Structure formats: structure tokens, C-alpha cells
Simulated assay, not measured.
Amino acid sequence: MGQRLNIEIHSGDNVLANAYYHWSGYTRSSIELAKRIVADHDKVQEENQTLRAIRLLELTGARLTNVEIEHAKSVGLDNQFEPADSRNAGLIAISEKGMAETQLWEEARVTIDLADNTVTFDALWSYSKEEYVDNYSQEEYEKLGEWSHDQDPTEPMSFEALDAFSQYIDDTIDGGSYTLKFTKDDEPSVVGFIE
């Protein structure tokens, strides 16, 4: 069984499209896929927002399934689409049913909101300090590296903040740790990486 990821493209509260990735719900692989979309989001200009969302997800290697290609045609998207060949590379959904199925299977989610250029990164474990100390120890908590940026890693972050967050995670993992502490609403909190 993979670690199943759902990347969703939103415009505000409206979900435009999502993609299911069977093996990419790990922290670093999720960030890498999100960075591909964010890096070129301004180069993908389509008048139709659903088509733009599809093209953005295609930057990751994901493709529409045959069922979703037929749905796209039924809603007036007569564009050429290369059909999906692998759940590992990503299966794009734009129908209500298809997107709901992806949400049902997800174990991690990255939400990219085109209305305000933010990424909400939910490919982490989140704990209160008390939960962490109860499961490990106060001594282990004290050893954790600290995310000192103003950005709460569990809340939407700007496209610009994604690179710094990605680099911090890489450095933390390369240093042998899969957990960091931060302060949220004046309360000490902990996030763990899914790796």
C-alpha cells in the first residue's frame, strides 16, 4: 500500500481539480510535486479555470483518466488530453464523483489556491507539546529543532514561503530528524514528517 496523496487545485472555496498519487503522500515527495506546480503556475494561462487546473496538475506528470476525459468533453473541454497510464504518476479528476473518490482515498493532502496564491500543506503529523511529551519525553522534546519562521507550517503559506519550508524540511531530515517544534497561537506544537 502506498502513502496516498491528493493534490487539489482551488480557486477560493471552489475545487477545480484534484489528482491522486499512490506513492507520493510523503512529506518530501509532496513538497516536490507542489513546487513543480508553484514554479510554473504563472506560465499556465487558460481562460477556463478547470482547464488551467488540469494543466497545472499535468506539470507533475498526472493525467486525466479516460472517464475524466469523457467528463471533460461533456462539459465543453474539447482539448487534447493524454490519458493517464499510472496511479503512481497521478490520476486527475474534475468530476464531482472523481474528486470525491480521490478525497476518500487520500492519506495526505496539498491544497493549492489560485485565488490567493497559497499552499496548505497537510502531509505532516501534528501534535501538541503535551501529546509529544506523553508519547516520547520532555528530554526528546527539548532536542527537537525549532521552526523559527513566522509561518505556521500547518496553515496556508504563500507560494514564496514554500521554498524556504522545503529547504528547512530537507535540512532537518538530512540532519537525522523527522520532527520539529514551533509555536502556534502562543502554544508549543510539534510536526512530524511522513517519510
Rank of each mutant, 00 (worst) to 15 (best):
M1K: 11
G2I: 02
R4Y: 08
L5Y: 05
N6Q: 09
I7W: 11
E8N: 12
G12T: 10
V15L: 15
A17K: 09
A19D: 04
A19H: 05
S24D: 15
G25P: 00
Y26W: 12
Y26V: 07
I31M: 12
E32P: 01
I37D: 03
V38Q: 01
V38C: 01
H41W: 11
H41Q: 13
D42E: 15
D42A: 13
K43V: 02
V44H: 11
Q45F: 10
E47R: 11
T50W: 07
I54S: 01
I54R: 02
L56N: 03
L59W: 01
L59Y: 01
A62V: 07
A62L: 03
R63V: 04
N66E: 15
I69A: 02
E70N: 11
E70W: 00
H71M: 03
H71F: 13
K73E: 13
K73Q: 12
S74F: 12
V75N: 07
V75P: 02
G76C: 11
G76R: 15
L77G: 00
D78W: 13
D78M: 14
N79S: 14
N79A: 15
N79D: 14
Q80K: 12
F81K: 09
P83I: 11
P83T: 08
A84M: 08
A84W: 06
D85K: 13
D85L: 10
R87H: 11
L91H: 04
I92M: 06
E96I: 04
E96H: 15
M99K: 08
M99W: 02
M99T: 07
E101G: 08
T102H: 15
T102W: 01
L104D: 13
W105S: 09
E107I: 00
A108T: 05
V110G: 04
V110C: 05
T111G: 11
I112S: 01
I112M: 01
I112G: 00
F121Y: 12
S126C: 07
Y127S: 13
E130Y: 10
E131L: 14
E131G: 09
Y132N: 03
S137D: 06
Q138K: 10
E142F: 05
E146F: 05
S148R: 15
S148F: 05
S148I: 11
S148K: 15
D152M: 06
P153K: 12
M157R: 06
F159R: 06
F159L: 09
F159P: 03
E160L: 07
E160V: 02
A161D: 14
A161Y: 08
L162H: 00
A164M: 08
A164R: 08
S166T: 08
Y168T: 10
Y168G: 09
D170E: 12
D171F: 06
T172C: 12
Y178A: 03
L180M: 13
D185I: 00
D186V: 04
P188S: 08
P188N: 04
P188T: 02
V191T: 05
G192V: 07
G192E: 15
I194P: 04
I194G: 07
